[in-house]
Amino acid sequence: MHIRDGILAPEVCLVAGAISLGAITYSLRRLRFDLEDRAVPLTGMMAAIVFAGQMVNFPLFGLPVSGHLLGGVLAAVMLGPWAGCLAISMVLIVQAVLFSDGGLMSLGANILNMAVVGAWGGYAVYATIRRMLGNGAAATVSAAVIAAWLSVLGAAALFCAEFLCSSRSAGVDPRGVLSLMVLYHSLIGVGEALITGAVLSFVLARRADLVPTPNAPGSVGTIGRFAVTGLMAALAVAAIVAPFKSESPDGLDAAAQNLKFDKLEVERPPLVLDDYAIPVPEPVWWPALPVSLAGIVGTLVVFIAAVVLAGITRRNVVPIRVADGSHGN
Protein backbone atom coordinates (compact mmCIF):
# COMPACT_ATOMS: atom_id res chain seq x y z
CA MET A 1 0.00 0.00 0.00
CA HIS A 2 2.79 2.43 0.85
CA ILE A 3 4.52 3.76 -2.24
CA ARG A 4 8.27 3.33 -2.12
CA ASP A 5 10.81 5.86 -3.27
CA GLY A 6 11.93 5.32 -6.84
CA ILE A 7 8.56 4.21 -8.16
CA LEU A 8 7.18 7.67 -8.87
CA ALA A 9 9.09 10.36 -10.72
CA PRO A 10 10.47 13.20 -8.57
CA GLU A 11 8.25 15.80 -10.26
CA VAL A 12 5.15 13.72 -9.53
CA CYS A 13 6.26 13.46 -5.90
CA LEU A 14 6.73 17.20 -5.80
CA VAL A 15 3.22 17.94 -7.07
CA ALA A 16 1.65 15.36 -4.78
CA GLY A 17 3.65 16.78 -1.87
CA ALA A 18 2.43 20.29 -2.58
CA ILE A 19 -1.20 19.13 -2.69
CA SER A 20 -0.77 17.18 0.54
CA LEU A 21 0.83 20.13 2.29
CA GLY A 22 -2.15 22.24 1.28
CA ALA A 23 -4.56 19.59 2.50
CA ILE A 24 -2.78 19.34 5.87
CA THR A 25 -2.75 23.10 6.30
CA TYR A 26 -6.44 23.32 5.44
CA SER A 27 -7.28 20.45 7.81
CA LEU A 28 -5.41 22.16 10.62
CA ARG A 29 -7.36 25.33 10.07
CA ARG A 30 -10.73 23.59 10.01
CA LEU A 31 -9.81 21.49 13.02
CA ARG A 32 -9.27 24.53 15.19
CA PHE A 33 -12.96 25.34 14.81
CA ASP A 34 -14.26 21.80 14.97
CA LEU A 35 -12.52 20.40 18.01
CA GLU A 36 -11.09 23.57 19.59
CA ASP A 37 -8.90 22.76 22.57
CA ARG A 38 -9.58 19.03 22.20
CA ALA A 39 -7.89 18.97 18.80
CA VAL A 40 -4.40 18.07 19.99
CA PRO A 41 -5.26 15.23 22.37
CA LEU A 42 -7.98 13.68 20.20
CA THR A 43 -6.10 13.84 16.90
CA GLY A 44 -2.80 12.79 18.44
CA MET A 45 -4.52 9.87 20.15
CA MET A 46 -6.29 8.83 16.95
CA ALA A 47 -2.95 8.76 15.15
CA ALA A 48 -1.55 6.56 17.92
CA ILE A 49 -4.61 4.29 17.69
CA VAL A 50 -4.26 3.82 13.94
CA PHE A 51 -0.54 3.31 14.28
CA ALA A 52 -0.94 0.69 17.01
CA GLY A 53 -3.96 -0.82 15.24
CA GLN A 54 -1.84 -1.42 12.15
CA MET A 55 0.27 -3.79 14.23
CA VAL A 56 -2.64 -6.22 14.31
CA ASN A 57 -2.20 -8.60 11.40
CA PHE A 58 -5.10 -10.06 9.51
CA PRO A 59 -4.38 -13.36 7.75
CA LEU A 60 -5.17 -13.20 4.04
CA PHE A 61 -7.15 -16.36 3.38
CA GLY A 62 -4.22 -18.71 3.65
CA LEU A 63 -1.74 -16.57 1.72
CA PRO A 64 1.72 -16.16 3.23
CA VAL A 65 1.25 -12.38 3.57
CA SER A 66 -1.11 -10.57 5.89
CA GLY A 67 -3.01 -7.32 5.74
CA HIS A 68 -3.80 -4.67 8.28
CA LEU A 69 -6.11 -1.75 8.95
CA LEU A 70 -5.43 1.46 7.04
CA GLY A 71 -7.81 3.47 9.17
CA GLY A 72 -8.60 6.53 7.05
CA VAL A 73 -12.35 6.06 7.09
CA LEU A 74 -12.38 4.81 10.68
CA ALA A 75 -10.52 7.91 11.89
CA ALA A 76 -12.77 10.22 9.85
CA VAL A 77 -15.93 8.55 11.14
CA MET A 78 -14.78 8.95 14.74
CA LEU A 79 -13.37 12.48 14.56
CA GLY A 80 -14.47 14.02 11.27
CA PRO A 81 -12.54 14.44 8.01
CA TRP A 82 -10.07 17.08 9.16
CA ALA A 83 -8.79 15.27 12.22
CA GLY A 84 -8.95 11.99 10.28
CA CYS A 85 -6.77 13.35 7.50
CA LEU A 86 -4.25 14.72 10.00
CA ALA A 87 -4.14 11.51 12.01
CA ILE A 88 -3.41 9.36 8.95
CA SER A 89 -0.88 11.90 7.66
CA MET A 90 0.97 11.72 10.96
CA VAL A 91 0.98 7.94 10.89
CA LEU A 92 2.47 8.07 7.39
CA ILE A 93 5.06 10.66 8.40
CA VAL A 94 6.20 8.59 11.37
CA GLN A 95 6.25 5.39 9.31
CA ALA A 96 8.31 6.99 6.56
CA VAL A 97 10.83 8.80 8.72
CA LEU A 98 11.18 6.43 11.66
CA PHE A 99 10.52 3.04 10.12
CA SER A 100 11.33 3.50 6.45
CA ASP A 101 7.87 2.11 5.73
CA GLY A 102 6.94 3.97 2.60
CA GLY A 103 9.21 6.39 0.83
CA LEU A 104 10.45 9.72 2.08
CA MET A 105 10.24 11.54 -1.23
CA SER A 106 6.93 9.87 -2.05
CA LEU A 107 5.53 10.78 1.39
CA GLY A 108 3.39 13.45 -0.23
CA ALA A 109 1.90 10.93 -2.65
CA ASN A 110 1.21 8.51 0.17
CA ILE A 111 -0.51 11.23 2.19
CA LEU A 112 -2.55 12.23 -0.84
CA ASN A 113 -3.62 8.66 -1.62
CA MET A 114 -4.30 7.44 1.88
CA ALA A 115 -4.92 10.41 4.16
CA VAL A 116 -6.63 12.86 1.82
CA VAL A 117 -8.57 10.34 -0.27
CA GLY A 118 -9.01 8.03 2.72
CA ALA A 119 -10.28 10.57 5.22
CA TRP A 120 -11.74 13.40 3.13
CA GLY A 121 -13.08 11.28 0.30
CA GLY A 122 -14.06 8.42 2.56
CA TYR A 123 -15.87 10.77 4.89
CA ALA A 124 -17.81 12.39 2.07
CA VAL A 125 -19.01 8.99 0.90
CA TYR A 126 -19.80 7.95 4.46
CA ALA A 127 -21.77 11.11 5.20
CA THR A 128 -23.73 10.92 1.95
CA ILE A 129 -24.70 7.28 2.37
CA ARG A 130 -25.56 7.78 6.01
CA ARG A 131 -27.83 10.63 5.06
CA MET A 132 -29.64 8.35 2.66
CA LEU A 133 -29.89 5.44 5.09
CA GLY A 134 -30.71 7.38 8.23
CA ASN A 135 -28.87 7.80 11.48
CA GLY A 136 -29.16 4.35 13.03
CA ALA A 137 -26.16 2.30 14.05
CA ALA A 138 -26.77 -0.14 11.19
CA ALA A 139 -26.70 2.71 8.68
CA THR A 140 -23.46 3.98 10.17
CA VAL A 141 -21.76 0.63 9.70
CA SER A 142 -23.04 0.10 6.15
CA ALA A 143 -21.96 3.57 5.13
CA ALA A 144 -18.51 3.12 6.63
CA VAL A 145 -18.04 -0.27 4.97
CA ILE A 146 -18.78 1.12 1.51
CA ALA A 147 -16.76 4.27 2.16
CA ALA A 148 -13.75 2.24 3.27
CA TRP A 149 -13.88 0.11 0.13
CA LEU A 150 -14.29 3.12 -2.18
CA SER A 151 -11.49 4.97 -0.43
CA VAL A 152 -9.03 2.16 -1.14
CA LEU A 153 -10.13 1.89 -4.77
CA GLY A 154 -9.86 5.67 -5.02
CA ALA A 155 -6.32 5.46 -3.70
CA ALA A 156 -5.59 2.77 -6.29
CA ALA A 157 -6.91 4.93 -9.11
CA LEU A 158 -4.85 7.85 -7.91
CA PHE A 159 -1.78 5.66 -7.75
CA CYS A 160 -2.45 4.53 -11.32
CA ALA A 161 -2.64 8.15 -12.42
CA GLU A 162 0.58 9.02 -10.59
CA PHE A 163 2.28 6.02 -12.05
CA LEU A 164 1.13 6.83 -15.58
CA CYS A 165 2.52 10.34 -15.20
CA SER A 166 5.81 8.90 -13.94
CA SER A 167 6.26 6.15 -16.50
CA ARG A 168 5.06 8.08 -19.50
CA SER A 169 8.52 9.27 -20.46
CA ALA A 170 9.99 5.80 -20.02
CA GLY A 171 7.83 4.56 -22.86
CA VAL A 172 6.90 1.30 -21.21
CA ASP A 173 3.58 -0.44 -21.21
CA PRO A 174 2.12 0.26 -17.76
CA ARG A 175 -0.79 -2.20 -18.00
CA GLY A 176 1.05 -4.87 -16.06
CA VAL A 177 1.68 -2.58 -13.10
CA LEU A 178 -1.82 -1.16 -13.24
CA SER A 179 -3.53 -4.54 -13.18
CA LEU A 180 -1.22 -5.75 -10.43
CA MET A 181 -1.94 -2.71 -8.29
CA VAL A 182 -5.68 -2.76 -8.91
CA LEU A 183 -5.86 -6.46 -8.10
CA TYR A 184 -3.86 -5.92 -4.95
CA HIS A 185 -5.97 -2.96 -3.93
CA SER A 186 -9.29 -4.66 -4.55
CA LEU A 187 -8.17 -7.30 -2.07
CA ILE A 188 -6.97 -4.67 0.40
CA GLY A 189 -10.17 -2.70 -0.16
CA VAL A 190 -12.36 -5.63 0.80
CA GLY A 191 -10.19 -6.22 3.86
CA GLU A 192 -10.32 -2.57 4.85
CA ALA A 193 -14.09 -2.54 4.45
CA LEU A 194 -14.50 -5.63 6.62
CA ILE A 195 -12.16 -4.42 9.35
CA THR A 196 -13.61 -0.90 9.42
CA GLY A 197 -17.13 -2.28 9.62
CA ALA A 198 -16.32 -4.81 12.34
CA VAL A 199 -14.41 -2.32 14.50
CA LEU A 200 -17.13 0.29 14.16
CA SER A 201 -19.82 -2.26 14.93
CA PHE A 202 -17.94 -3.14 18.12
CA VAL A 203 -17.57 0.51 19.11
CA LEU A 204 -21.22 1.30 18.41
CA ALA A 205 -22.36 -1.59 20.58
CA ARG A 206 -20.54 -0.14 23.57
CA ARG A 207 -20.23 3.59 23.20
CA ALA A 208 -22.53 4.77 20.43
CA ASP A 209 -22.14 8.30 21.80
CA LEU A 210 -18.51 8.35 20.66
CA VAL A 211 -19.53 8.26 17.00
CA PRO A 212 -20.72 11.71 15.99
CA THR A 213 -23.51 12.42 13.53
CA PRO A 214 -22.10 13.74 10.26
CA ASN A 215 -24.67 16.50 10.13
CA ALA A 216 -22.85 18.31 12.89
CA PRO A 217 -21.78 21.84 12.01
CA GLY A 218 -18.39 22.24 10.46
CA SER A 219 -18.55 19.26 8.14
CA VAL A 220 -18.60 19.51 4.36
CA GLY A 221 -21.69 20.94 2.69
CA THR A 222 -24.19 18.57 1.09
CA ILE A 223 -23.36 19.55 -2.47
CA GLY A 224 -19.67 19.17 -1.83
CA ARG A 225 -20.28 15.77 -0.31
CA PHE A 226 -22.30 14.60 -3.30
CA ALA A 227 -19.62 15.89 -5.61
CA VAL A 228 -16.86 14.09 -3.73
CA THR A 229 -18.93 10.91 -3.49
CA GLY A 230 -19.45 10.97 -7.23
CA LEU A 231 -15.77 11.58 -7.71
CA MET A 232 -14.87 8.68 -5.45
CA ALA A 233 -17.22 6.35 -7.28
CA ALA A 234 -15.73 7.50 -10.57
CA LEU A 235 -12.24 6.90 -9.24
CA ALA A 236 -13.22 3.41 -8.15
CA VAL A 237 -14.58 2.65 -11.60
CA ALA A 238 -11.48 4.19 -13.15
CA ALA A 239 -9.31 1.90 -11.04
CA ILE A 240 -11.10 -1.16 -12.36
CA VAL A 241 -11.02 0.13 -15.91
CA ALA A 242 -7.47 1.48 -15.88
CA PRO A 243 -5.70 -1.74 -16.94
CA PHE A 244 -7.94 -1.99 -20.01
CA LYS A 245 -7.39 1.54 -21.06
CA SER A 246 -4.14 1.36 -22.96
CA GLU A 247 -4.93 -2.01 -24.49
CA SER A 248 -4.02 -0.57 -27.88
CA PRO A 249 -1.93 2.53 -27.44
CA ASP A 250 -3.31 5.24 -29.65
CA GLY A 251 -2.28 8.65 -30.83
CA LEU A 252 0.14 10.36 -28.52
CA ASP A 253 0.90 7.24 -26.51
CA ALA A 254 1.84 5.25 -29.55
CA ALA A 255 3.97 8.06 -30.91
CA ALA A 256 5.78 8.46 -27.64
CA GLN A 257 6.35 4.77 -27.34
CA ASN A 258 7.66 4.39 -30.85
CA LEU A 259 10.01 7.29 -30.31
CA LYS A 260 11.32 5.82 -27.13
CA PHE A 261 11.74 2.39 -28.54
CA ASP A 262 13.81 3.78 -31.34
CA LYS A 263 15.88 5.82 -28.99
CA LEU A 264 16.49 2.86 -26.76
CA GLU A 265 17.55 0.71 -29.63
CA VAL A 266 20.21 3.25 -30.41
CA GLU A 267 21.44 3.88 -26.89
CA ARG A 268 21.06 0.36 -25.72
CA PRO A 269 23.31 0.16 -22.71
CA PRO A 270 25.92 -2.51 -23.10
CA LEU A 271 25.54 -3.78 -19.56
CA VAL A 272 21.94 -4.83 -19.77
CA LEU A 273 21.74 -8.55 -19.65
CA ASP A 274 21.20 -9.89 -23.06
CA ASP A 275 18.48 -12.14 -21.85
CA TYR A 276 15.82 -9.48 -21.82
CA ALA A 277 14.74 -11.27 -24.87
CA ILE A 278 13.91 -14.42 -22.95
CA PRO A 279 10.68 -15.55 -24.43
CA VAL A 280 8.34 -14.56 -21.65
CA PRO A 281 4.91 -15.52 -22.88
CA GLU A 282 2.57 -12.61 -23.30
CA PRO A 283 -0.58 -13.71 -21.59
CA VAL A 284 -3.32 -11.61 -23.10
CA TRP A 285 -5.68 -12.53 -20.30
CA TRP A 286 -3.31 -11.28 -17.64
CA PRO A 287 -4.41 -7.70 -17.29
CA ALA A 288 -8.05 -8.02 -18.15
CA LEU A 289 -9.64 -11.06 -16.59
CA PRO A 290 -8.40 -11.02 -12.99
CA VAL A 291 -9.10 -7.31 -12.65
CA SER A 292 -12.69 -7.49 -13.80
CA LEU A 293 -13.22 -10.56 -11.63
CA ALA A 294 -11.70 -8.80 -8.64
CA GLY A 295 -13.93 -5.81 -9.28
CA ILE A 296 -17.10 -7.85 -9.42
CA VAL A 297 -16.29 -10.14 -6.51
CA GLY A 298 -15.08 -7.19 -4.42
CA THR A 299 -18.29 -5.28 -5.03
CA LEU A 300 -20.39 -8.29 -4.07
CA VAL A 301 -18.41 -9.05 -0.93
CA VAL A 302 -18.49 -5.46 0.23
CA PHE A 303 -22.24 -5.13 -0.22
CA ILE A 304 -22.89 -8.42 1.53
CA ALA A 305 -20.53 -7.33 4.33
CA ALA A 306 -22.37 -4.03 4.63
CA VAL A 307 -25.69 -5.81 5.08
CA VAL A 308 -24.41 -8.52 7.43
CA LEU A 309 -22.40 -6.19 9.65
CA ALA A 310 -25.33 -3.78 9.77
CA GLY A 311 -27.54 -6.64 10.91
CA ILE A 312 -25.09 -7.67 13.62
CA THR A 313 -24.78 -4.08 14.78
CA ARG A 314 -28.53 -3.55 14.92
CA ARG A 315 -28.81 -6.56 17.17
CA ASN A 316 -25.96 -5.58 19.47
CA VAL A 317 -26.40 -1.87 20.00
CA VAL A 318 -27.81 -0.95 23.35
CA PRO A 319 -29.78 2.28 23.63
CA ILE A 320 -27.37 5.18 23.90
CA ARG A 321 -25.32 5.11 27.04
CA VAL A 322 -23.93 8.52 27.66
CA ALA A 323 -20.35 8.88 28.77
CA ASP A 324 -20.53 9.55 32.45
CA GLY A 325 -16.84 10.13 32.95
CA SER A 326 -16.97 8.27 36.23
CA HIS A 327 -13.75 6.46 35.50
CA GLY A 328 -11.85 5.41 38.56
CA ASN A 329 -14.45 6.61 40.91
Binding site: D173, G176, F261, E282
Partner: peptide
Protein backbone atom coordinates in the same frame (compact mmCIF):
# COMPACT_ATOMS: atom_id res chain seq x y z
CA UNK B 1 7.81 -6.99 -18.75
CA UNK B 2 5.12 -9.52 -17.89
CA UNK B 3 2.57 -7.46 -19.77
CA UNK B 4 4.82 -6.74 -22.71
CA UNK B 5 8.35 -8.00 -22.82
CA UNK B 6 10.72 -5.74 -24.72
CA UNK B 7 13.90 -3.69 -24.31
CA UNK B 8 12.20 -0.72 -22.80
Amino acid sequence: PMARSNDA
